[in-house]
């Protein structure tokens, strides 16, 4: 399965690399576009030393961790969005008769390697924050765990969004608000948001486990909203709890797919 995935991804990458100038330009521009969010953080901290009690490096750590998870998913999973077009035009049929799972085919559909610019940008920010904060292994072991957790949570979100397209047929904007909105949300410490919103993203849609709860552990801080210490370690469990219904929803979607025809 993994081999097939990379084979398909590699095929699309080679196709895109046929225009090397455009390819390099898009990687660079992706890097710059993503760096704008960091520029905003830096400008905010040019005016203040603490945002909701968090320092610049701490915010950058949270930003980098969430950004890395999100951009990895944006590169490797977000092509699922395109399912709505395929459902509408009826081309989804061809995905179902090929000898590879539809999910694998869709996630590599027009695989866009130029998004690595964003991954690189997030990784640099995360690396800088870790170095600047001087985080050692005794708490730093959580960082790879939280990036992996974030990848699973975002991938599950995208799968849920794609599964919804079987019902909604043509509303990628609705689901994009959730996927890209959750990226925006996780860029800052959740302490800046209203209490009810934070409760929602902790207990309903587990976005708080992408970087906030494990991040608090890495930083050795207490939650301003007063959740117990044990919550810091629940990330992987929360990711699984979201991934299971996502997988089920996707299977249900495929089962209920009706082709179009004239």
């Amino acid at each position: 399965m993994v081999r097939t995935y990379f084979l398909l991804a590699w095929t699309w990458t080679r196709a895109a690399a046929a225009y090397p100038g455009s390819f390099v330009l898009m990687v660079a521009l992706g890097f710059v576009a993503a760096a704008l969010d960091v520029a905003v953080v830096l400008i905010i901290f040019a005016n203040t030393t603490a945002l909701a009690g968090f320092s610049r490096e701490e915010v950058l750590l949270l930003y980098g961790a969430a950004g890395l998870s999100f951009s990895l998913c944006d590169t490797f999973v977000s092509n699922l969005d395109r399912v709505s077009q395929h459902i509408k035009s009826g081309t989804f049929d061809t995905f179902l008769i090929r000898p590879v799972g539809a999910w694998i085919q869709l996630t590599t559909d027009r695989f866009n390697a130029t998004r690595v610019g964003r991954v690189l940008q997030a990784a640099i920010v995360l690396g800088y924050a870790i170095a600047a904060l001087g985080i050692g292994w005794e708490r730093g072991w959580m960082i790879p765990v939280m990036v992996a957790t974030g990848v699973v949570i975002f991938a599950a979100l995208w799968t849920l969004a794609a599964a919804l397209q079987f019902v909604l047929t043509d509303a990628p904007e609705v689901t994009n608000a959730f996927t890209y909105g959750s990226n925006q949300l996780t860029q800052y410490p959740l302490a800046v948001y209203a209490r009810d919103l934070v409760k929602g993203v902790t207990y309903v849609l587990p976005l708080a486990f992408v970087n906030w709860q494990p991040g608090l552990y890495v930083l050795g801080r207490d939650d301003p909203f007063g959740t117990p210490e044990a919550m810091r370690f629940l990330g992987p469990a929360a990711a699984l709890v979201l991934a299971l219904p996502a997988a089920l929803a996707w299977r249900q979607g495929i089962r209920h797919y009706r082709s179009t025809g004239s």
Binding site: N47, A50, G181, Q184, V192
Partner: peptide
């Protein structure tokens, strides 16, 4: 909307 919260936090600090 999320941006509003960030700006509120900034103006509360300064």
């Amino acid at each position: 909307m999320l941006r509003a919260y960030v700006l509120i936090a900034l103006w509360q600090a300064r």
